[in-house]
Amino acid sequence: MLRRSLSAQTNGEARITDILRSKFPRASAIKVVDISGGCGAMYEVNVESVEFKGKRVVQQHQMINQALKDEIQAMHGLRIFTAVPKVCDGEDSQ
């Protein structure tokens, strides 16, 4: 398995991260990993954002797919993980 520095992002990871940051400005966490060994064929994205609050998981994933629609055309695959932060906009967890 190919290992690289945790702080070094590939160009593809950086590009996808930038797109997701612009589409989800209220995201508390965005992580993009090229899981194809660095060739850019398959990515795993993790996005935690209040923009997902009140949406079903399938709707959250559709939002990610829509944000990355142009990039997805060149990919072999995309793993998507989404979450709503435990505490949103100062609200207490219930």
Rank of each mutant, 00 (worst) to 15 (best):
R26V: 04
E48L: 06
K23S: 11
D34Y: 06
D34N: 04
L68F: 03
C39M: 05
E51F: 06
P25L: 05
C39S: 13
V47R: 02
N46H: 09
A74Y: 03
L20S: 01
E71T: 00
E91C: 14
M75F: 15
I72V: 15
I35Q: 07
S5V: 04
R79H: 10
L20N: 02
M63Q: 13
G54I: 13
G77N: 06
D89E: 13
R21L: 02
G90L: 12
M63T: 03
D18P: 01
M63A: 11
V57Y: 07
G40H: 13
V58T: 14
P85Q: 13
P25C: 08
A41G: 12
K23D: 07
R15I: 00
K86R: 08
M75T: 02
R21G: 04
V33F: 07
G54T: 10
M42I: 07
G37H: 05
Q73V: 14
G90V: 02
R56C: 14
S7L: 15
S5A: 14
H76S: 13
L68T: 00
A74Q: 14
R56K: 14
M63N: 10
R3Q: 07
R21E: 02
A83R: 04
V47N: 01
L78A: 12
Q73D: 08
A74M: 10
V87R: 15
A74F: 06
G77Q: 11
R3M: 09
R15N: 04
I72Y: 00
F81E: 03
Q66P: 00
D89V: 07
Y43M: 01
K55E: 14
Q94P: 09
I35F: 14
P25H: 04
A29G: 12
F52R: 04
V45C: 14
H61M: 11
D34H: 11
A83N: 13
D18C: 02
S36K: 06
L2G: 04
A83F: 03
N65S: 14
S93L: 11
M1I: 10
I19M: 10
F52T: 05
I16Y: 02
R4H: 07
L20H: 06
S7N: 12
R21F: 02
M1A: 13
A29S: 09
H76C: 02
R26S: 08
